[in-house]
Amino acid sequence: MNVAVILVAVFFAGMGVAALVKPALIWAPFGVAPTTPDARNEVRAVYGGFGLAIAALLIAAESATADFRDGVLVAVAVALGGMAAGRLLGAVADPKPLLRWPGFFFLVEAALAALLLSAR
């Protein structure tokens, strides 16, 4: 198993478990609190379920055919790159957040995307 792929899978699994167990933890760094059942459900679905699904997919891809594995790594890297790009585009309208948590997550997302692409 590739260490880079496992590292990215652990990141997604951690995000997923945190979102399912304590949804407020996910949005807290951004000054947002999921105060309604609908908001907590959204956090659990988008960050929890998605995070665990991506982690499972990355782990499964490690024992799959080379073509399937490469497809998974590229798809997840593109998703992470899209998240990072969204943060950069958001900085055009609101530049200060990149100096706080959004900037940190921009770096994490960009680094994880690069890790996956290098693991191909």
Score class of each variant (00 low, 15 high):
residue 54 I to E: 01
residue 33 A to T: 14
residue 24 A to M: 07
residue 48 G to M: 08
residue 119 A to Y: 07
residue 87 R to D: 12
residue 21 V to Y: 12
residue 5 V to H: 02
residue 65 T to H: 00
residue 115 L to T: 11
residue 99 L to T: 02
residue 59 I to V: 15
residue 96 K to C: 04
residue 61 A to R: 01
residue 84 A to W: 03
residue 112 L to V: 07
residue 82 G to A: 09
residue 53 A to P: 04
residue 79 A to M: 04
residue 16 G to D: 04
residue 65 T to I: 01
residue 1 M to P: 12
residue 115 L to W: 08
residue 22 K to D: 05
residue 32 V to D: 03
residue 51 G to V: 03
residue 85 A to G: 12
residue 36 T to K: 05
residue 95 P to N: 13
residue 109 E to I: 02
residue 64 A to N: 01
residue 56 A to D: 00
residue 36 T to I: 08
residue 16 G to Q: 00
residue 87 R to C: 08
residue 102 P to C: 06
residue 7 L to K: 14
residue 59 I to G: 04
residue 10 V to G: 02
residue 59 I to K: 01
residue 30 F to V: 07
residue 84 A to N: 05
residue 104 F to Q: 07
residue 78 V to W: 08
residue 9 A to N: 09
residue 34 P to I: 07
residue 72 V to F: 11
residue 15 M to V: 14
residue 13 A to H: 10
residue 88 L to S: 00
residue 85 A to R: 11
residue 36 T to W: 05
residue 112 L to Q: 15
residue 93 A to D: 14
residue 10 V to W: 02
residue 66 A to T: 01
residue 56 A to R: 02
residue 85 A to T: 15
residue 80 L to I: 13
residue 110 A to Q: 09
residue 83 M to W: 11
residue 88 L to W: 03
residue 29 P to D: 06
residue 14 G to A: 09
residue 70 D to N: 10
residue 44 R to E: 12
residue 20 L to N: 12
residue 97 P to I: 06
residue 63 S to C: 08
residue 42 E to A: 14
residue 111 A to N: 04
residue 56 A to P: 00
residue 61 A to V: 01
residue 87 R to Y: 14
residue 52 L to S: 10
residue 68 F to G: 00
residue 29 P to C: 12
residue 15 M to D: 00
residue 77 A to Q: 02
residue 43 V to C: 09
residue 107 L to T: 14
residue 99 L to Y: 03
residue 120 R to F: 05
residue 102 P to W: 00
residue 112 L to I: 07
residue 28 A to G: 11
residue 61 A to E: 00
residue 110 A to C: 10
residue 70 D to C: 11
residue 70 D to M: 09
residue 58 L to S: 08
residue 65 T to D: 03
residue 18 A to D: 10
residue 82 G to H: 04
residue 6 I to M: 10
residue 51 G to W: 01
residue 42 E to I: 05
residue 61 A to M: 01
residue 32 V to H: 12
